[in-house]
Amino acid sequence: MKRYAMVVDLKKCLGCQTCTISCKLFHGLGPDIVRVKVIEQEEGEFPHVERMFIPLRCMHCDDPECLKACPTGATKKRTDGIVIVDQDECMGCRYCAVVCPYQARTFIAVDRRYFPGNGNLWEAKRYTEHQTGTMQKCDFCYKRIDEGISRGLEPGIAPEATPMCVISCIGKALYFGDLNDPESKVSRLIKQRNGFRLKEELGTEPSVYFLPRR
């Protein structure tokens, strides 16, 4: 059994937002709808200040809060660990977004365009892929992965079978692979560099690991 996971190297992330935009473009997401958000934190007082970037996306928790909270069953967990939202089932209550400890979900409230009032061929074609009034979140590009696998490619190694954000990251800060395979790049990185997960104390068992900055 596979368990897909991502590793984020905080030492390498430079906050460029390439992951965010490439994901948006790939999935055809409208204004302010993001599946991965690179947040920024600043701590301390001048001149002893620490500033850092933390890419946040769905952690594909093994025990997902959202799954438990979702009343409709629109949120589902696949056998490979990927947590997805079935847009056809979602009623848009937003409980999942509130309970997610990682602010991984965005609600598509209305069909909003970057260029209000103006026609734009691209938006007209791409935004039909999503339903308004439903929840959006990272799905580890599962369609891409499934399709890649069906062509005999290995996720995390072949770009065609790897999430868009991972292959676009210009800091090479993102890795994807199978957590259950101790030899996979993600497993090895987590071991070698003391990978940790965010808010582990909540018991959500995220599948996204972070490598420390120092």
Partner: peptide, 18 residues
């Protein structure tokens, strides 16, 4: 072979109604 955030903006640049 990778491109930065600006390059992904090119699609919007092309279809920009303004």
């Amino acid at each position: 072979g990778r491109v930065c955030v600006k390059a992904y903006g090119l699609v919007q640049k092309m279809y920009n109604p303004n």
